[in-house]
Amino acid sequence: MEPLLHLENCSLNIDGRQILNNLNLSVKEGTIHSILGSNAAGKSSLAYLIMGCCDYSVDKGKIYFAGKEITNLPISKRAKMGITLAWQEPARFEGLKVRDYISVGMRKVDEYLIEEALREVLLEPKDYLDREVDKSLSGGERKRIELASVFAMHPKLAILDEPDSGIDILALDNIINIIKGLKKQGSTIILITHREEVAQIADITSLMCSGMVVKEGSPQEMSKYFKEKCVPCPTKTFPQEENI
């Protein structure tokens, strides 16, 4: 079966710096595909590239989604095809209520479904619906609302950029349940995470280093490899053939 998302030799330069380097990635429909890699490996950049964010268009390479080339499509078009992104540090919006933020991505706005999405992320609807998505929310609350809004959108592909960062360690089980819930709902998931417990729920893991996918395998294999070979990083600059 052809993959839902396929990146072919994608490179990305920003201000003369190579951020992604001939990157290849295939994501199968209905899977949770996790991305593992140290800080600055290029994980968030990869997320922006797939989403189509404005400074992150490929210099070389092609992106295919659901059998169509999307390399040059703007964010809105990609989102309308069913791709969405939960940001590592989601933006704040003065004057925009949680209910309205969540409803933005819904095909048909339905109060019940908005509340469902909030319950899914363990936020009590009556306490949050009329609050603003502004600075008054804590980091953890904002990230939960981000997940709720992805949930309510029913995307074909959800890219979750460190959904577990800045969230209480006690809440990890809940985050794991939310991601499983998304999968159950029919979404394919790209899961960027540092946390081993969270990475374990993936069906497959890609290991990223210096803007490349250097290895792929089961989450257990990849995190074992990552712990043994990448922390601390033996090369600092570039993955050596013999280490991979």
Binding site: C53, C54, P74, A79, I83, T84, L85, S149
Partner: peptide, 10 residues
């Protein structure tokens, strides 16, 4: 902010 909303289809 704009890209966040666009990523939901606006």
């Amino acid at each position: 902010q704009v890209e966040t909303l666009m990523a939901r289809g606006l």
